[in-house]
């Protein structure tokens, strides 16, 4: 390469390519995204967070919570189970089909009581095939779909996170490190009150926690004429001196509201589950 213009051209080609690919194209594909409908329902998803939780998202950002916590659940696959809900008019035929497809028939009262889970651990195709056979024989079945993977098994969510979950977040704080647990469904696991106790003194509710306490989000003050209704009910070893109480500041309340609003469990077309 003999002159500067050529180098500029090289930069333009290379960086321009990835700019189109990872800035322009995602914006064209997802920038105009709207709410989607939840599977088997007429409700839309996501709905915006309540006002206090939206302000709490800003406290979450200001204190860098995303440095240690992710908000994205991973799943490795799905598993299906077939549930017999109705044996129909010809239970004998249904029973025969069930034997054919390998249902364990040791139970003498078969097929009662209904609904009964007859097959588990299937792929979607196997479940559909089994369901088809039983339906032809006159029975009725439901297929339950559950996500699998370590994150799901830990109870961090019911399905993987998808692009739709973050539609109204500003900024989107996915996080990249799990120094602490994933928070994509923190609201489904604990209420705002637990969050406040955990923020003030993590070890008071989570023995051995390595999270730094956020005491600056609380005010330790002398109890006035009567105790504040918001004051934390701490175990004795974390409580302040007698005559004092710990009252959350507005920021702490907002942060707790945000954490309890974190919930991404709706079944979607892009992440189908049917519990």
């Amino acid at each position: 390469m003999k002159n500067g213009a050529l180098i500029f051209l090289a930069v333009f080609v290379a960086l321009g390519g990835s700019w189109c690919g990872f800035v322009l194209a995602p914006e064209l594909q997802l920038g105009g995204a709207k709410q989607t409908t939840i599977l088997n329902s007429s409700d839309v998803y996501p709905v915006g967070r309540p006002g206090e939780a939206t302000q709490g998202s800003s406290v979450y950002r200001a204190n860098g919570c995303a440095v240690c916590h992710t908000e994205q659940v991973r799943q490795t696959g799905i598993t299906c189970e077939v549930v017999l809900t109705d044996a129909g008019k010809t239970p004998a035929a249904v029973t025969k089909v069930c034997v054919d497809i390998g249902v364990n028939m040791t139970d003498r009262t078969w097929p009662l009581p209904l609904p009964k889970t007859i097959l588990t651990g299937l792929t979607k195709e196997e479940a559909d095939a089994a369901s088809g056979k039983i339906t032809t024989a006159g029975g009725k079945v439901e297929i339950h779909i559950a996500a699998t993977g370590p994150d799901i098994a830990r109870g961090w969510g019911m399905r993987q996170s998808v692009a739709e979950d973050y539609l109204y977040d500003q900024p989107v704080q996915l996080g990249s490190l799990r120094a602490g647990p994933d928070l994509a469904n923190a609201g489904a696991r604990a209420d705002a009150n637990w969050q406040l106790l955990h923020l003030y003194a993590p070890k008071s509710v989570m023995k051995g926690s390595t999270m730094p306490p956020f005491r600056y989000l609380f005010e330790v003050r002398k109890i006035g004429r009567e105790p504040s209704p918001d004051a934390l009910k701490l175990p004795p070893e974390f409580a302040p001196h007698a005559g004092y109480e710990v009252v959350p500041t507005p920021e702490a309340m907002e942060l707790a509201a945000y954490l309890s609003s974190l919930r991404a469990t709706a079944p979607l077309y892009s992440a189908p589950i049917a519990p």
């Binding site: 990872f22 914006e27 997802l30 920038g31 692009a163 973050y166 539609l167 109204y168 500003q170 989107v172």
Partner: peptide, 10 residues
Amino acid sequence: PVRGVVQAII
């Protein structure tokens, strides 16, 4: 700011 997960991609 762009909306949603496009932020994370950029």
